[in-house]
Amino acid sequence: MFTKLLKTFILMILFCTTAQAQVQDTIVVARDGSGKYRNIQEAVESVRAFMDYTVTIYIKKGVYKEKVVIPSWIKNVEFVGEDAENTVITYDDHANINKMGTFRTYTVKVEASNITFKNLTIENNAERLGQAVALHTEGDQLKFINCRFLGNQDTIYTGAEGTRLLFLNCYIEGTTDFIFGPSTALFDHCTIYSKSDSYVTAASTPQSVKFGYVFKNCKLTAAPNVTKVYLGRPWRPYAATVFMNCELGKHILPLGWHNWSKTDNEKTARYAEYMNTGEGASTKERAAWSKQLTKKEAAEYSVENMFKTTSNWDPYK
């Protein structure tokens, strides 16, 4: 009897040890070969599908020139860079390479949900020869914390209806429509840097979705020669974009918003501001079809309200 119990106990230990060996809590990526992988995509492909535990892919300083795709069967993964400025994922595709088109130009494409990025730079450093996406998202409940997004036209594409994203303490730069798409996204304490006279946002919020792009406590800055920038123009008629408690630089035009040369958009686009400051925040000459929120209306833009859909999500927890 004792011998049988002992064998069972040993088998249980072996089973637990094997199970633990299959769980990769942290995967290290390093260009210098000091990690398990030299490329980020290799680390992604090593992650088990539909995990119910969190895996950290820790990326050491270096320049990673690769197109990275996080597929839909991956979840609960945190991509953590060693240093935001010196951990760089970069590529240089643009829309006019072999008729590639905008949506294949990404450097990083996130098809998965429940993914977090921290302390990283995601860059598309193509020449200014067409649209060139740095980050393309399709998943839900995505968080970007202390990240940098570098590019020109179309830097960030939030590409799926009904998805929810948080950008916290991020730096985002670009030229034209460099934050665009249909997702609900909160930009909190971010720096938005315009590199040319153009448009910051081009939301395509569906009519049925109340919240599109919401910028809170952000700072809008520009290159020294940039003097004529619109806050946004509607890529689709019901575009929704709000700037709240933001500092708007003098490069923001007094009109504030553009109708994309379609007067019908003025009847449907949902553009608003609340308590902004800075040289570009004056509301005296704002587009008559945009709105200044009341205190009560502004209170509706809470995290709880914005991210409540079929499931509640608080990205700050």
Rank of each mutant, 00 (worst) to 15 (best):
V44W: 06
T263Y: 03
G101S: 11
E111F: 10
L253D: 10
N245K: 13
R104T: 10
L248K: 01
A298Q: 10
T87L: 00
A287F: 03
L14P: 08
A239Y: 04
F243H: 10
Y106E: 11
K250F: 02
G212R: 01
Y106F: 15
N146H: 14
S113N: 13
A203H: 06
C147M: 08
F211Y: 15
L248N: 08
Y37G: 05
P224C: 02
T26Y: 07
F103T: 12
G181V: 08
R236L: 13
L186K: 06
S34T: 15
M244Q: 07
I145K: 00
T227V: 14
V229N: 01
Y230I: 12
L14C: 14
A84D: 12
P315R: 07
Y274H: 11
V200D: 03
I156C: 11
L168K: 14
N259V: 10
R233G: 04
I179V: 15
E279P: 12
T107E: 08
V23L: 10
S46G: 06
N169W: 01
E111N: 14
I74R: 07
S72G: 00
T87H: 02
K65Y: 06
S204T: 15
A43N: 05
C170G: 10
S113W: 03
Y37F: 15
R148I: 06
F15M: 13
E279K: 06
A49W: 07
R104L: 09
Y58F: 14
L120A: 00
A272D: 09
K67R: 14
T8Y: 12
C170D: 13
Y199H: 13
S204V: 11
T26F: 01
S198P: 04
Y316G: 05
T121A: 01
P234K: 05
Y171F: 15
E304V: 07
N146Q: 13
D188W: 10
G249T: 08
W73Q: 13
D25T: 15
I179E: 06
S34Y: 05
A269N: 04
E82L: 00
W73T: 09
L14G: 03
Q24H: 06
S261A: 09
Q24I: 00
V80K: 11
V23M: 09
V44F: 04
